[in-house]
């Protein structure tokens, strides 16, 4: 680009950006001012919100390489700050909504309790059930793989059952398997089974006619073409089911505890802390659940990246 061109380009850019900046800024100031007239606290909250949003706009427009990370982080922090400010400024009761700092305090002071609950609910209940359910579902999909007839029946039925409120089986399974983690694992098995089954069956059907013909020209046996062609081709689908199921597993394990549990577990803690109005503890458990949920999802995503690096959806970065 020559000097004059660059100059023109810059000038036009500055012009347009100064024009487009001025109006929103004036609007924001006016809005915050109006809020302040009603209630100075409201004005303050609005001012912080608008300032943070403005900063985010600037960051977005800047085109700096780190913005993909910085902008959402800033947005998250803004939400936390606004939450904290609102609770403190409007003097909201602990019983209704604790401030983030209160929740953090609950997390730090009751670490051992949270850890015990985590082990009981996530490791014993959710994870064991998740693994059993996934193995069972994939095994079932492979078992019906040779029968077109069963697949045609199983796909719609499985899809239908996957849309049902399966958590509702929790009271029945708690009655069958007792209050321990086994009943929670059972609920999780039932919840994750159908999504994974449906995805695996669909995935195993994924190969196109040409690829199957190729295997035929090699006179490959059923298991050879299964192991070398159809299973790898099905992996993206299987992982889809596995990812959807991570959240279901945690939901199942926690909700099942509402129907009966030993005196440990995240669902149990949420229920009892709620009864005694220790809301900070409830939120602490929610935070743990959130981290556990994202962590589990992250792990599965990582495995997916390793195993299906070749799929177009994973290739972008390579």
């Amino acid at each position: 680009m020559s000097g004059t061109q660059a100059g023109k380009f810059l000038g036009r850019n500055l012009q347009s950006s100064s024009k487009s900046f001025l109006a929103p800024v004036a609007g924001a100031v006016a809005l915050a001012g109006a809020g302040a007239l009603l209630d100075w606290r409201l004005g303050l909250v609005l001012a912080v919100w608008l300032a943070a949003w403005g900063l985010n706009i600037v960051l977005t427009e800047s085109g700096s390489p780190g913005r993909r990370f910085v902008v959402p982080t800033l947005f998250g922090i803004t939400l936390l700050v606004l939450w904290q400010m609102s609770v403190r400024l409007f003097d909201i009761s602990q019983v209704i909504l604790p401030a983030p700092t209160d929740i953090w305090e609950a997390i730090t002071t009751s670490g051992p309790v949270l850890w015990a609950d985590f082990v009981q609910t996530v490791v014993k209940g959710a994870l064991s059930g998740y693994v059993m359910g996934a193995v069972l579902a994939i095994a079932t999909a492979i078992a019906v793989d040779r029968s077109q007839f069963l697949q045609r029946g199983l796909l719609p039925v499985g899809n239908f059952i996957a849309a049902l409120p399966i958590v509702g089986t929790a009271p029945i399974l708690v009655m069958w398997f007792g209050f321990g983690w086994q009943s929670k694992a059972a609920v999780v098995v039932v919840m994750v089974f159908f999504p994974i089954l449906v995805n695996t069956v669909a995935g195993l059907k994924e190969t196109d006619a040409m690829q199957r013909d190729l295997m035929r020209t090699y006179a490959a046996s059923y298991w050879q073409s299964f192991a070398k062609l159809r299973l790898p081709a099905a992996l993206p689908f299987i992982f889809n089911g596995l990812k959807v199921s991570t959240t279901l597993a945690l939901i199942g394990a926690i909700v099942a505890e509402f129907f009966g549990s030993p005196i440990v577990g995240m669902g149990f803690r949420i229920k009892t802390s709620f009864g005694t109005l220790e809301l900070a503890m409830v939120w602490a458990e929610i935070a743990v659940a959130a981290v556990a949920g994202s962590g589990l999802y992250g792990l599965v995503t990582l495995a997916e990246k390793r195993l299906t690096f070749w799929h177009p959806s994973q290739r972008a970065g390579r």
Partner: peptide, 28 residues
Amino acid sequence: TMDLSVMPWAIASQTIPILAIAPMVIVV
């Protein structure tokens, strides 16, 4: 800006078992 700010959280929020706290929200 909305895309960059909100989208990651919208996706991440789907991995959180938020349903488990539904009853509390009602009482609050």
